[in-house]
Simulated scan of single mutants.
Amino acid sequence: MRVFVAGATGVIGRRLLPLLISQGHEVIGLARSNSAAVEVEMLGAVVAEADALDAGALSRVVKDAAPDAVVHLLTAIPARINPRRMSRDFAQTNRLRTEGTRNLLYAAEQAGAKCIITEGLACIYEPSTWVPATEGAPLWRNPPHQFAPVLAALRSLEQRTRQADGLVLRLGQLYGHGTSYGRHGSFVRQVQAGKMPIIGSGDGTFSFTHVADAASAIAVALHSQVRGALNVVDDEPARVREWLPILAEVLAAPPPKHVPVALARLTAGAWGVALMTRLRGADNVLARRVLDWAPRYTSWRQGFAAELIHAAHP
Rank of each mutant, 00 (worst) to 15 (best):
Y175S: 11
V220R: 14
T179L: 08
L174A: 12
P197V: 05
V191H: 02
I218E: 04
F187A: 10
V220D: 00
A212T: 12
S186E: 04
A215Q: 06
R183H: 05
L174S: 07
G204I: 06
Q192P: 11
G194C: 12
H177P: 09
V188D: 05
T179F: 09
V191Y: 02
T209D: 12
G204N: 06
A193K: 15
G178F: 15
S180N: 08
I199L: 15
G200L: 06
A193Y: 04
G194Y: 09
F187D: 03
T209N: 12
P197T: 08
A193I: 11
T209F: 10
T179Q: 09
V211Q: 02
I199V: 15
Y181V: 04
F206V: 14
F208G: 04
G182E: 08
G178Q: 09
S201G: 13
F206P: 01
S201W: 09
G176R: 05
M196G: 00
G182R: 10
Y175M: 13
V220C: 08
R189N: 14
T205D: 02
G185R: 01
T179K: 05
Y181T: 01
H210P: 07
D203F: 03
T205L: 05
T205I: 11
V211S: 01
A215M: 06
H177S: 13
G202Y: 02
G202A: 12
G178L: 13
I199G: 01
S186I: 02
V188H: 05
G204H: 05
G176P: 11
R189P: 08
A212E: 14
H177W: 10
